[in-house]
Design a protein around this nucleic acid. Structure first.
Lengths: 141, 141
DNA sequence: TACACTATTGCAACTATGTTGCAAAATGTT
DNA sequence: AACATTTTGCAACATAGTTGCAATAGTGTA
């Protein structure tokens, strides 16, 4: 784990710091997307709020994580797959928010469908967020 | 216009107040969706910030307006079509954000397509936000 | 390993956004 | 017009996010 994280930082041309390691760790330990507050909880008092903001921004810039739009307007972050590179996200999958456990997942294999735009409108990016009940909650109720 | 607004308020079982009239007016004068800040600009110093928050919330509850999720996590509001009623929004159209003029539009006639969910996931609501260039900006550049 | 250079962090202060309780004012009803 | 009910404005508070700057830690080089 430790080595995996260090490799990822090196590959992204980032220096290896405690905060970056700890924050990336949060993402690897969790299969769902994380809000800023979740990360603050995970890293505890070790790091300043501002450091977390800046670190997340750095990770987004380098293509390590991506942000997820949510209907309730909270900012969520999730790990990018390997096909993302600095400044160029390949984030065309559907995101899923569970109404029960409130976790957000990247449905990596569900591609956002194309839609026919009205005359004059040109689409460059499409975000699709589905909410409902996730597979874990469905299995346990 | 004045009468149209009063009728709408009456139909929604809301009392007719200056702030509600002025805020509804903002929506009727503008064909695109409005952020809280836009409304604050439009109504000027006439009303308290808190009043605007509460009025918008009331309108959402009564099915007069609906919120739009945006990728940059700003809250936007737009008028509902007549098919919306209190507590029951029929908001299954696609929303469009122009990268040029930054306005947000409801594409009333573009219905959100269905997507195949992975095993175990049950969808109850789907939000789709498209960004690109709107018809007005395309026509004038 | 020690040095110097650069990048990163923490702190403090600030802005923006949104919420709550309560008293005052406006609205609707009789 | 008088009353009961809503709605509003104010003040205070809570949360989220940003910026400048000095202190600190990380990196490459000798």
């Amino acid at each position: 784990m430790e080595q995996k994280i260090i490799d990822l930082l090196k590959r992204s041309n980032l220096s290896i710091t405690d905060s970056r390691k700890k924050i990336l760790e949060s993402f690897f330990e969790q299969d769902s997307a994380l809000a800023h507050a979740d990360i603050e909880d995970h890293v505890g008092e070790d790091f300043d709020r501002v450091t977390i903001y800046r670190t997340l921004q750095t990770f987004v810039d380098k293509g390590i994580i991506h942000t997820i739009p949510t209907p309730d307007n909270a900012v969520l972050y999730a790990l990018c797959k390997d096909s993302c590179s600095a400044g160029h996200h390949h984030d065309n999958h559907v995101h899923f928010i569970c109404d029960n456990c409130n976790k957000t997942f990247c449905l990596e294999h569900v591609v956002v469908p194309a839609v026919q735009m009205p005359n004059g409108f040109a689409a460059s990016q499409i975000d699709m967020v589905v909410s409902g009940i996730c597979n874990y909650c469905n299995a346990t109720t």
